[in-house]
């Protein structure tokens, strides 16, 4: 399932990919498409976070908790501190989500399988319950996010796009390094046999905790970028359980084969959604649901496996 993920070249291809996406988005493609690329890259970060967790067979049905927390951190920083600087925004989003992930990680690291999924869901719904009912947190309306600035200057849509590309490249480098480190390797071993890992003298819980915080940071960063790109946050589209479901969906759709897959998958998802919404406003959920089933049944390795299949030079041995 994870073959090829740790190849040396992956990261160069990844950086090249992001460069091309950003250049296409800012110079060649019409604006609406570049929006989809921008949202896709942002959401892809959260999916990358989920994918990293998935490598230990932990699937969070509540990752919108960090996604939404990052987004709301940006909103709160703007409302109460007047922060609109894009660097500060992303740092605040990542730090807030990371801190929350660190605290909850102490509890969640003891859980596996469906219990991990359900406890994540419970935590995300706790946040949802607060945000949706509390007037000072914007209740179901959420809050507007004003356009981002950099060192006091208005950043503009293109500037924001470059910035998102920059954050994504940094995250790719980081994720790549992490997965290649012994800590990263360890977690795949945990998936295979936890007890054996313990006997080798490693703390499984600690390794999972670190992974969980990294995953939370990525999701928080995704939320922060998404908030800046969209200009709006609200609990129904940032924190509700169905948002977590969407993130898991994109993870599966993308496939777990490569750290680039989340971004390809997320961009693809934005396009299905845009088109489904435009051509069948009363059946777009059905189209997304149908796509989901089709992928599970006919493309179990996700979209990424398509890219591997069309490679005529290299047949991966199973």
């Amino acid at each position: 399932m994870f073959k090829g993920i740790l190849k040396e070249q992956t990261i160069q291809v990844g950086i090249g990919f992001v460069f091309i996406v950003v250049l296409l988005g800012t110079f060649i493609l019409p604006e609406w498409m570049s929006n989809n690329f921008m949202y896709g890259l942002s959401r892809g970060l959260a999916v990358l976070g989920l994918m990293i967790l998935w490598r230990t067979n932990l699937v969070s049905f509540g990752h919108a908790l960090y996604y939404g927390f990052g987004a709301y951190a940006v909103a709160m920083a703007q409302k109460y501190l007047g922060v609109t600087d894009v660097f500060l925004r992303i740092i605040i989003a990542i730090a807030a989500a990371g801190l929350l992930g660190f605290v909850l990680g102490f509890i969640l690291r003891r859980y596996r399988e469906i219990f991990f999924a359900m406890l994540s869901l419970a935590f995300s719904m706790v946040l949802y319950g607060l945000l949706a009912k509390a007037e000072f947190l914007g209740s179901t309306d959420g809050m507007s996010i004003s356009p981002s600035t950099m060192f006091g200057f208005e950043l503009g849509r293109f500037g924001l796009f470059y910035f998102i590309g920059f954050v994504v490249i940094l995250s790719l480098i980081f994720a790549h390094a992490y997965l290649r480190s012994s800590l990263g390797h360890l977690t795949t071993a945990i998936m295979d046999n936890e007890i054996r890992v313990e006997y080798l003298g490693y703390s499984v819980e600690k390794a999972i905790h670190i992974k969980y915080v990294i995953s939370a940071c990525l999701a928080g960063g995704a939320g922060g970028l998404m908030a800046a790109a969209l200009g709006q946050v609200d609990p129904d589209s940032m924190v509700l359980w169905s948002v977590s479901g969407e993130l898991v969906f994109v993870t599966i759709m993308a496939g777990l084969g490569n750290i680039l897959a989340p971004f390809v998958g997320a961009i693809f998802f934005e396009f299905i959604r845009t088109y489904a919404y435009e051509f069948a406003p009363q059946a777009w959920q059905m189209i997304i649901g149908g796509t989901l089933l089709a992928i599970i049944f006919f493309l179990p390795g996700g979209l990424w496996s398509l890219f591997q299949k069309i490679n005529p030079f290299k047949k991966e041995k199973k």
Binding site: P30, E31, W32, M33, N35, Y39, T140, D141, G142, L230, G231, Q232, V233, D234, D236, S237, M238, T274, Y277, E278
Partner: peptide, 17 residues
């Protein structure tokens, strides 16, 4: 339907697409 965030995305689509 779908909340403010989604509507903002659709609004941008309307204008730009």
């Amino acid at each position: 339907s779908g909340g403010g965030t989604k509507q903002v995305g659709l609004f941008r689509d309307f204008v730009q697409k």
